[in-house]
Amino acid sequence: MNEKEYRVRKPISDTIFGIFVVVFLFLFVVITLYPVLNTVALSFNDGIDAVRGGIYLWPRKFSLKNYQTVFAMQNIWTGAKITVLRTVVATVTSLFANALLAFVVSRKRFMFKSQLSLFWVITMYVNGGMIPVFLLYKNLGLTGTFHVYWVPGMISAFNMLVMRTYMEGIPESLEESAQLDGAGYFTIFKDIISPLSKPVYATVALFIAVWQWNSWFDAMLYNRMKTEYTTLQYELMKLLSSVMQQSGSADSAKNSANTITPITIRAAVTVATMLPIVCLYPFLQRYFVTGLTIGGVKE
């Protein structure tokens, strides 16, 4: 039996399975994308017209009014400003702190290397829980300030371990020769290890940035009363929760459509909130996947 004959006798079950693969993946893509695209379409549709329903992938009555309304809302601007600011500040400080710590624990000859690692690994498994943490931040005077967004989470054991694993792969001889030339540890960190660790820096910076961009719980828990420190996600959450309360009390969502924020406005805020991530993640995803695999190896 030659190769060709063999190919012809492909079992019928394989054809059926092939059809299943195509249908499954088609449905998967549709179910993943449709709700997102539908939200985008709604955000460009006239608000009153949208209540009738029947808007799918394209707006029926095109209107930019939703976005005009959203961009005229002061709290959205404040939220956007704080969200950008916290993302930038936290990414820079947290990246630096984690990198420096990872550098220290990855020095093979450092005398307290294993104790320091253990000290941080433990924090991954035990934590005080919501209330002790809340009281701590309150006592430290962090609640009601912008600093609550970047100070408490500055060092994270997971991010540190990802970086440590990477730095451990850098040949020790580089460090030794620099030391012979009289370089101190900070110089080695700044001029030798950091330039070589750029890929893992990018990965961790992205982890932190996306985490910061998407956070809402800290804004709600610690800065509820401080409208000047609100975030975009939290503003969206407030819009959403007012609707949830409505749908929980009125039996028909249609009747309450006039009293709550129109669905199209919510759609516009949703799109504005996710836009930066949707635009950027396809280019950055390989860094995330790298981080996942490095982190996974170490687990």
């Binding site: 709700p35 939200t39 998407n214 996600q233 969206l236 959403l240 669905i263 949703t270 996710m274 949707v278």
Partner: peptide
Amino acid sequence: LPHFLSWIVVTSILHV
């Protein structure tokens, strides 16, 4: 894609 969206955005989309 959905992994990178916040739960707020996901619930908002789902709600629609």
